[in-house]
Amino acid sequence: MRVPILKQGGYLIASVQSALTDRDLLDLRDNLAQQVGKFRSRGVIIDVTSLDVLDSFAVRTLRTLAQMIRLRGAETVIAGIQPEIAFAMVQLGLDLGDVATALDLEEGLVLLERRTSGGGRRAKRSGN
């Protein structure tokens, strides 16, 4: 199942569905890294509220995703990790490293505004 990516102002919001295959997650990573350039976004929010499981593969992929987005000059926030998912992650020994997290989408937006000093839009493209 493809993850829909919504453009909101200078930010991109990806709302992850309940079940994502490994392929879907890798596609999401690559699509976001591309679209950050296409829309000149300052920040990305991955909303994982309805995700059923965050296992070692998903966490590794989200970490790589956040690193790629940073290299593209934008910020990533993972929003909506549910309490039972957080518990399973701790038991597994997984953490998101220095990837920013937020309680939900709304908090994620607030965090991004702060980190990108508002607005979210980048300089206009000059030439190519």
């Binding site: 490994d22 059923d52 499981v53 965050l54 296992d55 070692s56 593969f57 549910q82 309490p83 039972e84 998912i85 518990f87 399973a88 038991q91 597994l92």
Partner: peptide, 16 residues
């Protein structure tokens, strides 16, 4: 509750 998530996560790891 969280037991369902623990079971699903353990299955995800061994299946992968």
């Amino acid at each position: 509750g969280s037991d369902l998530t623990l079971v699903a996560t353990a299955i995800s790891e061994v299946a992968r």
